[in-house]
Nucleic acid binder design. Structure first.
Lengths: 130, 130
DNA sequence: CTGCATGCAAAAACTTTGCACCGCC
DNA sequence: GGCGGTGCAAAGTTTTTGCATGCAG
């Protein structure tokens, strides 16, 4: 089906090293260092493919462009409403809310996506480094 | 601060009558019937303002354009992954997840947004009317 | 009158796509 | 060599914005 591609491999590797959920643009700029001819279209195509394959996760926060997460283990995210940063959050499973939703929905609930929002430590302390 | 505007009033009234979470485009087309000179820019500006004022709610699902909800009472939404419909869901409060998140986050959690996804009744039954 | 709101159109922001060529299998 | 992947550029989609004019307070 899908062939091996050095660009795709590199995108995946890059994401594995980042914990700040970069945008397509940022991924493009970074992977371009190894593949100077890389095009943004290729980045989008591969991010889309990898997301479908479940090898990475797409985060649509509704604020700015989509972000991507190389970590597909179950975890949540917190958006800082001041600086826009997206941070990982490890909490115990809240999948019971799907069961709760199922009882009130006439159809089939398959899952949920949840983003917490608030202020990150740096913004609370008025550091401008975020 | 903000002046009264007939267009804004009409947008708000229109949203109050709809339970299908229309997009800016759909709102535009409908309100245009009463204000033939209405422009899409005005719709976007007012939707943005009303959202800031907390008089309506913006839904960013990450699939297609943003949608808007005139109902600001606490409730949740279910996205049908087949037809794209967004339906209301009344469940008991799950705000306890904010407390849970707070214990693991170095910063301040102010809230969350959660979208459930699955298949709506019509899609499960293969009706094409959605 | 003064200034926010509007209409219009252009532009910005983000993402997808067509096509010719390239390189994996 | 056939077919999927890439680079490039154009186009698509959604949203924002500049500016002259209009209307509310």
């Amino acid at each position: 089906m899908t062939k091996h591609s050095r660009q795709r491999e590199c995108i995946k590797e890059f994401l594995a090293t980042r914990y700040d959920h970069p945008t397509a643009e940022i991924i493009y700029l970074n992977v371009k260092e190894k593949f100077p001819n890389l095009s943004l279209g290729t980045v989008y195509r591969n991010l889309s493919l990898l997301t479908e394959l479940g090898e990475i996760q797409k985060l649509s926060t509704g604020i700015g462009p989509d972000r991507f997460d190389g970590n597909i283990a179950p975890h949540y995210h917190v958006l800082c409403t001041k600086c826009g940063r997206v941070q990982d959050l490890e909490i115990e499973s809240i999948d019971h809310i799907d069961t709760l939703a199922s009882t009130q929905f006439d159809g089939k609930i398959e899952g949920h996506f949840t983003y917490f929002f608030g202020k990150c430590r740096d913004c609370l302390e008025n550091k401008n480094n975020c």
